[in-house]
């Protein structure tokens, strides 16, 4: 029942954004984590992951008027764009694709375990946003900004021991 309500909500959001592109921000917020969980596993670096993710949403915005609702989540359409964009990125970078398959598989046919991992990552990213502010800052600085304990401590004006404890508590909260 909950899934049906969410689907109906999403359909309304898509239709609203098709009528008025300024409503696209809501679709972006709803789907950003899922797309971002998908992309880094298919590119070589954080910078490439950001480039590809940005391109996915730019392409989605431009092509939104052509999107047709066929009962599959909007995220599937975004992930199909992400698949192609990541493949383009690999070609541009002159690398062989990371995926050994001749074509990077569309999300619906890709390995179920990988899909599960990505969905877990997306949930994890959303949970980070719900952490208490000091724990959230430590997690973001430490893992997303890739800063050392020393640098995080300097930036937050806390001792290194306190930062390690915040890191520990944040991970415990995320695991709960």
């Amino acid at each position: 029942m909950k899934a049906r309500v969410e689907e109906a909500d999403e359909r309304l959001l898509v239709e609203a954004a098709q009528q008025d592109p300024r409503r696209f921000g809501e679709l972006y917020e709803r789907n950003f984590d899922r797309v971002y969980a998908f992309v880094p596993r298919r590119v070589a670096s954080r910078a490439e992951a950001e480039d590809v993710t940005a391109e996915v949403f730019h392409r989605a915005l431009v092509n939104l008027p052509r999107f047709q609702w066929r009962g599959v989540p909007f995220a599937s359409w975004l992930l199909r764009i992400a698949t192609n964009t990541a493949a383009d990125q690999q070609r541009r970078a002159g690398r062989k694709r990371l995926d050994p398959a001749p074509e990077i598989a569309a999300p619906e046919t890709s390995d179920a375990r990988q899909v599960e991992e990505e969905e877990r990552s997306a949930r994890l990213f959303r949970l980070v946003q719900q952490l208490p502010a000091d724990q959230r800052r430590v997690v973001r600085l430490r893992f997303a900004e890739e800063k050392s304990i020393h640098k995080v401590a300097q930036e937050l004006g806390r001792s290194e021991g306190a930062v390690k404890q915040l890191q520990f508590r944040a991970l415990e909260n995320l695991r709960a």
Partner: peptide
């Protein structure tokens, strides 16, 4: 913690949203 290595940078998330809003 290893999974959090894929955590998006907040600045990136916000900047991309601003870019999309502008484009829209």
């Amino acid at each position: 913690a290893l999974e959090l290595r894929f955590l998006p940078r907040e600045r990136f998330r916000v900047r991309l949203r601003e870019e999309l809003e502008w484009e829209a």
